[in-house]
Amino acid sequence: MIAPGRVVAAADLLIGGFLLATAALFAIAGPLAWPADPMAGSLLATLKAPGSAAVGAVHPLGTDQIGRDLLARIVRGTQISLAIVLVAGVLGAVLGTLLGLVAGYAGGVADAVIMRLVDIQLAIPFILLILLVMAVVGPGIVNLVVVLGVTGWAVYARTARARVLELREQEFVEAARAIGVSLPRMLGRHLLPNIMAPQIVLLTLDFPRLIVLEASVGFLGLGVQPPTPTLGNLIGDGRAFLLVAPWLVLYPGLVIAALVVGFNLLGDGLVRRMDARAR
């Protein structure tokens, strides 16, 4: 018999995977299926409602205040937002996992220092710190990726360290230590492979936070600058036209919600899967 937990895990994985695959397809194949230019506007087609045709072109999701096609802008925005979040997430995960490995294995002063840095990082509201740094270094995709990535390391360090503390006492680690394995080899070859899976699950569950964070920064106008669209700055720009053109806010938000639900379900499913295996 299949345990009920397995069924729920499978359903979560399936629905989450489906949502994310759809979003990925939307971002990657979107420009091929819908070749409208996300940057080109027409003053004859400003603020057209979804589905309306203007100057010879149909706009399934309508147009914005300078007549740009919203569908094309959402496709481009999804690409950019997803790329930012994926790179930033991996950056934070790698950084945090490395520091967590060192803290857990080396112990002593290194451990104390790294863990205090974790506490410090977690005490500062992410969005405020990100806004402060973005205001100092200036907006831009690279700056945003670095800031989102570097500020996201703390949780990974905490979990990696906790795992390593358990592993450190196990026989294969003692054996490796006994034959005099070098520190980088110990961390990279013996400990890292054993903590990879939970760290990747954590990354999956961290993506929703990053998506919303990136969108919030974009919404407040300190992220990627217009005319380049992101899911957040599309909503920020559309806000002024909320009453006359609600679609400008509605559709980018739906994409954000789909991405967040997708990553959450996928992450939850992976957690259940791992728990089931651990039993």
């Binding site: 929703p208 919303v212 969108a215 919030s216 919404f219 909503i235 806000r239 909320l242 806010v249 938000g253 954000i256 919600a257 789909a258 967040v260 639900v261 959450n264 379900l265």
Partner: peptide
């Protein structure tokens, strides 16, 4: 799940 998926600013708008 949907409550957690919706960004605050989008819900607000």
């Amino acid at each position: 799940l949907s409550g957690q998926a919706i960004p605050v600013f989008w819900l607000g708008l």
